[in-house]
């Protein structure tokens, strides 16, 4: 074979090798989950008859409308630490909040474990409280390396939660904070903190029963 043939072969092999390397190196880490694909074949078709088809379509529209709230709802975006009161089309209120840090605390003596994440999902405002007092849970003392008091009155803190609180889920609250400089950062133990002005506005706008969507 002539020597200059290698001038064609070597760059070609290098080029193909490089292309293979690029494609292997940048391939997606995960593989597609076919179970999550909804294709045409999985869905029902409209009846051929025009009247039946429009009836079926109306039924489907009504089902879809049923799952949408008719009144404004609260949305808590834990990714950007933002709280909204909104409808499908418009935002009525927006505030910067703080949500759960996602951290954990383990009591080395008893092995008890706490997870400080804001719960995700759909909830409702179940209570509205003015001038709430915080009944400090055990973890609050463990965090401060203080002994857990036996007197329940020693657990009460009148300042920490601000002027208003709105309960949702399993003992979680949207409340105020004395650490307003930390708004926008995920630092809480699961509750949602708002600045005092935003809290007042939201408190006045939101009745009990308002849906709360947290994602």
């Amino acid at each position: 074979m002539r020597w200059w043939y290698w001038l064609i072969i070597i760059p070609l092999v290098l080029l193909i090798g490089f292309v293979i390397f690029v494609f292997v190196y940048t391939r997606p880490k995960s593989s597609p989950n076919r179970a999550l694909v909804i294709s045409d074949s999985l869905l029902t078709r409209l009846p051929q008859d025009g009247k039946l088809a429009s009836k079926e379509l109306e039924k489907a529209r009504a089902l879809l409308a049923k799952i949408k709230p008719t009144k404004p709802y609260i949305v808590i975006d834990t990714h950007a630490n933002s709280l909204y009161l909104r409808t499908e089309d418009s935002i009525l209120f927006k505030g910067t909040c703080s949500t759960g840090s996602g951290g954990e605390l383990i009591d080395s003596l008893t092995g008890r474990k706490w997870s400080f994440a804001t719960p995700r999902g759909v909830f409702k405002v179940t209570s509205k409280v003015t001038d709430p007092w915080w009944r400090k849970p055990d973890w609050a003392f463990l965090e401060d390396n203080e002994p857990i008091p036996s007197d329940p009155n020693e657990r009460l803190d009148p300042e920490m939660l601000g002027a208003f609180a709105m309960g949702f889920g399993d003992n979680y609250y949207i409340h105020g904070t004395i650490y307003e400089r930390l708004l926008g950062v995920s630092v809480t133990h699961g509750c949602v903190r708002l600045g005092s002005e935003d809290l007042k506005k939201l408190y006045d706008m939101v009745p009990i029963g308002t849906p709360v969507y947290i994602f």
């Binding site: 995960s30 593989s31 694909v37 294709s39 045409d40």
Partner: peptide, 11 residues
């Protein structure tokens, strides 16, 4: 070709 309306995000 399957007329997918929903797909999972790959990455």
């Amino acid at each position: 070709e399957e007329k997918n309306l929903v797909r999972p995000l790959l990455d």
